[in-house]
Simulated assay, not measured.
Amino acid sequence: MHGQEALADRFEEHRGHLRGVAYRMLGSLSDADDAVQEAWLRLSRTAADAEAAEIENLTGWLRTVVSRLCLDMLRSAATRHEQPAAWHLPDRISETGDGGDPEEEVLLADSVGRALLVVLDTLGPAERVAFVLHDLFAVPFTQIAPIVERTPGATKKLASRARHKVKGPPEALAAPELAEDRQVVDAFLAAARSGDLEALLTVLAPDVVRTADLSAVIRGARAVAEETVLLKRNARFAEPALVNGTVGVVVAPYGRLVIALLIRTDGGRVAAYEVIADPERLRTLKVSVLPPADGRASSDARVMY
């Protein structure tokens, strides 16, 4: 029993790391916790077989087990052609989620980056595992290759293909207006989150036009600003992203895309934006991650930029 307790203590030292890996691979806190718990069960069974003492690199062993479990879960979901359920934005955040602590998952999505989670959700299972392990956790391709059942060279190509999707088109990233558009969108989101009507009027062009799924239209800065203030709770789950090659916004409460904003700027203001919430239209969008606004790589993007 003493040995099992000692092993449990060692496992707990790794739980946070394993949970972070699994969450980025699966995009679901409850699924990530399931994978981590299964890793513990496998470790405890290994200990019962007197093999745990032979594990030289416990961190690597556990990460490999969790990664293989996540890959199996991703492949199973892909085989069943699973689509996320309708992710609405309820009045109280506790009314939704995937079975875990909703508020904790909101905070975790914030820390990882909602745009990154949205893009990761579009990758194939092996692509996602290779990208997360290498680009986000600096695991060598020689260690990833056995997990995804490919050669190190093929694994490197998997991660490279995924990285291209995450970063977006080079021409969009090199566009001279990117930085200015990002500033405008950041200011718009900051005002929307705070419900600051005057700040919204400053960032919106006087003749701004807001459309929703090509139908509902609102014209004029004050009308658009007042509508935005009414929906300010959505802004909590919003993040700038490249949407179809230009700076826009994704609204993803738990890393699942439910709304996207296509934004057109002019003269340092928002001239027009379209709200897209229709699931079919959302699936046609090309979303990618913007470089950090300050030009420095974040902990989840050290290789990307």
Rank of each mutant, 00 (worst) to 15 (best):
L197C: 11
P84N: 05
S30Y: 09
A126N: 11
D135H: 15
R19F: 14
A145L: 02
A22D: 01
R161E: 14
Q83M: 08
D121G: 13
R163Y: 04
L58P: 09
E82Y: 02
S94L: 12
S288R: 02
K156D: 07
E82V: 13
R161K: 15
Y23M: 12
L117S: 01
G99H: 09
P291G: 04
E227P: 10
R63G: 05
E12I: 12
V229K: 03
V250G: 01
M73Q: 14
V208E: 01
D207M: 03
A192P: 06
N244F: 05
S288P: 10
A293D: 03
T122I: 05
A205Q: 03
D9V: 12
E280R: 08
P240N: 01
R42A: 06
M1Y: 10
V21E: 06
H2W: 12
R256L: 10
V303P: 03
R222Y: 08
S215A: 14
A301I: 09
L290D: 04
G267S: 03
H2M: 09
R264G: 03
E280T: 11
G195V: 03
H81P: 07
A252L: 01
A159L: 07
E95D: 14
V129E: 09
E180N: 14
R193F: 01
A109V: 04
E274A: 02
L230F: 07
E180R: 15
R296P: 07
L71V: 05
G16W: 14
L123F: 10
D9A: 13
S215T: 14
T122N: 08
A22P: 05
L158C: 03
L26F: 00
H164A: 15
A271T: 02
K156W: 10
S160K: 15
A172T: 10
V106S: 05
S76T: 14
L257T: 02
K157W: 04
N244V: 02
A297L: 08
E171L: 12
L290F: 00
L231T: 06
H14W: 09
A77W: 01
K157H: 11
L189T: 07
D9Q: 12
T142V: 14
A293S: 09
T46E: 08
V275K: 04
H164Q: 15
T284M: 04
P279R: 02
E274Q: 03
L214G: 13
V258G: 09
T122K: 10
L123G: 11
A301P: 08
R296Y: 11
N244M: 06
A192T: 10
A187S: 13
A174T: 14
A260L: 07
M25W: 04
A216D: 13
V129N: 09
P102V: 03
V184R: 02
P169Q: 15
A175S: 12
I276C: 00
R92T: 13
V185Y: 00
A221Q: 04
L108N: 05
F237R: 05
A241D: 01
H17D: 12
F131Y: 13
D34N: 15
V229L: 00
L231K: 06
Y254C: 08
R182Q: 12
W61L: 10
L41N: 13
L7N: 01
L116M: 05
D110E: 11
D294A: 08
E105D: 07
D213P: 11
F237V: 03
D33E: 15
P169I: 15
E13L: 12
A223P: 03
V119P: 03
D9W: 07
L214P: 07
L136G: 11
L123C: 08
L231S: 09
A77L: 06
E105S: 06
R10P: 06
Y305V: 15
D207W: 02
